[in-house]
Design a protein around this nucleic acid. Structure first.
Lengths: 162, 162
DNA sequence: CAGGAAGCGTCAACATGGCTGCCACATTTC
DNA sequence: GAAATGTGGCAGCCATGTTGACGCTTCCTG
């Protein structure tokens, strides 16, 4: 949260600055996600598989429902992805200890290895961008992106940071 | 370009900070793009149509080839999108005055109106995030995203700013 | 000025990853 | 015991990406 009070005519709120943000977000996001496509294709997986893999790595033993909430897709779409990941031996599920209806998801060693390899590609790109922009810029980067996420959603994201 | 020299152990380059960036980028991008889905669905269009619409609005009279370069999809995929936009009366093309092989793309008044309405939704979200984060943060946001784009690609993006 | 290269359009076929609707089952909670 | 919840599965649809091949028209160069 910055301490500045934006004036009514703040220059950084005008159309060119907004368009610049839209474009950089589009291109930046595109290039970052493309960084792992090759690694995924090797295993016959797609981006949907990676998103699931990523969040399971991030929060082991999360339930199918929690993952659905993060990905914001339908149960059916996720089901297909989880089935694939299971068949590839990358993800395994066990029954919830408290609520036996739940299935707790976890990466297998092979899954963890693949996720780490894919993350390495993301890390390379993003840390290069971080280093080039500097620490302060990184704080700004986070702050703006946080502002794009509806307040109701933020807790779920913050929870990923343990 | 920040003036800081990242030390070998810069805290903001460690895994948690990288993961935070990956996640915020994912969620921020998702929420921003979802902001216009309703408006698009009303017209029977999808996100692919919006991307084309957006860049044609941004750079009128751009050629099919230039648009292909920006979107980084195949000619066939773009062809389908442009055909749709033409049928809806949102985009029109005229023969290039210098090179008659080229088709210069332009929004019709209806196309400009739709693009403006969709942009308004993006503007609302992004300017709220800008205002909340403050002007300095916005600079950092841009700087990090620029670092994600391969150097070879940057000129094309900078060119959008006239 | 002939011939190759470039810009564009288009056909067919296919893959991925979303979606909806509907149903089934085990389990938990009221 | 009834209702709500968490999960799984089937069938089918749609949007948007892909490859490969081919054919125009136009431009440029030797």
């Amino acid at each position: 949260m910055a301490a500045t009070f934006p004036s009514a005519s703040a220059l950084f709120l005008r159309e060119p600055e907004i368009r610049r943000g839209v474009e950089l977000l589009y291109f930046g996001y595109s290039h970052l996600t493309r960084a792992i496509d090759a690694g995924l294709a090797e295993k016959g997986l797609g981006r949907a598989h990676h998103r699931a893999l990523y969040f399971i790595a991030r929060q082991p033993d999360l339930t199918v429902g929690q993952l659905l909430g993060l990905l914001a897709i339908t149960k059916q779409s996720l089901g297909r992805v989880l089935t694939d990941l299971g068949k590839h031996g990358l993800v395994e599920a066990r029954t919830g200890p408290n609520d036996r209806r739940q299935r707790l998801l976890r990466l297998t060693p092979a899954g963890a290895e693949l996720e780490a390899a894919l993350f390495e590609a993301l890390r390379e790109r993003l840390s290069a961008a971080y280093a080039k922009a500097g620490q302060e810029a990184v704080g700004g980067f986070w702050a703006v992106l946080e502002g794009l996420v509806p307040a109701a959603e933020l807790p779920r994201i913050e929870a990923l940071r343990r």
